[in-house]
């Protein structure tokens, strides 16, 4: 098991946001975390990487409980995180953005070099010295993923990678995620676009009002249109 989350509860100030979240990600798996805006997807990710201070529960990554570690230590351990809204460093060039993400080689995870990443995202290779602020939204999204891969993670949390992108770019994103999977990276994707999620995921969880209310394979989800439509507002 790559990642095991159990009894995860999170709070913002007095507000209880996540209730007893439990989820599992197997070696090399792509898992979708589906839910509406505000259901708790981003908070789940932020809690796993330690960006939410007030949280309790067990987060076991590669057999080690990381729930008390600070963010940078969790990430250095090989758990990569790509936040929503891209958040690249617009003042830095593409190569400098990648430099920020660079971490040492890891035994149990694929090793990424600039050249390998530019094969995965050819657009980026053509603009190595361009500043992030002068890239389109699609290129920025590619760069955030590439930047996280520079840390040689064995698991990546991808928060809403398709949001605000044109259909064509979303299709490129599908290819990139499948290529990452092929390299051996385990992936959790949070999504609202079920079409997109279906193209990449092995399994899915549905989160609603801070609680996990479904977990199963994509086929099992399709067999339950009642659950799907009720919780995803399709």
């Amino acid at each position: 098991m790559k990642l095991q989350v159990a009894d995860l509860n999170s709070f913002y100030g007095p507000a209880h946001i996540l209730f007893d979240i439990a989820l599992e990600v197997g070696e090399g798996e792509v898992v979708a975390l589906l839910g509406r805006n505000g259901a708790g997807k981003s908070t789940t990710f932020r809690s796993i990487v330690g960006l939410v201070e007030n949280r309790s529960g067990r987060i076991v990554f590669e057999g080690k409980d990381v729930s008390r570690e600070p963010t940078h230590a969790i990430v250095r351990g090989g758990l990569g995180y790509v936040p929503e809204e891209r958040r690249i460093f617009t003042d830095l060039t593409v190569e400098e953005n990648l430099e920020v993400g660079r971490q040492p080689k890891r035994r149990n995870a694929p090793h990424w070099t600039h050249e390998k990443l530019f094969t995965l995202f050819p657009n980026l290779g053509e603009m190595r010295n361009r500043s992030g602020g002068r890239m389109s939204g699609g290129e920025q999204q590619m760069l955030t993923i590439a930047r996280t891969l520079m840390g040689n993670p064995s698991l990546v949390l991808l928060d809403e990678p398709s949001e605000g992108l044109s259909p064509k770019i979303v299709e490129q994103m599908v290819d990139a995620i499948l290529a990452m999977k092929k390299e051996g990276v385990s992936i959790v994707v949070s999504e609202q676009n079920l079409h997109f999620a279906r193209l990449i995921s092995d399994r899915a969880y549905i989160i609603e009002r801070g609680k996990i209310c479904f977990g199963g394979t994509m086929a099992e989800l399709d067999a339950r249109p009642d659950i799907r439509d009720a919780h995803l507002s399709l």
Partner: peptide, 17 residues
């Protein structure tokens, strides 16, 4: 320079900010 722009993101990339 990266932290100048987005501190939390730097931490999320494994840097002890």
């Amino acid at each position: 320079r990266a932290a100048t722009q987005d501190r939390d993101m730097v931490a999320a990339l494994g840097v002890n900010q």
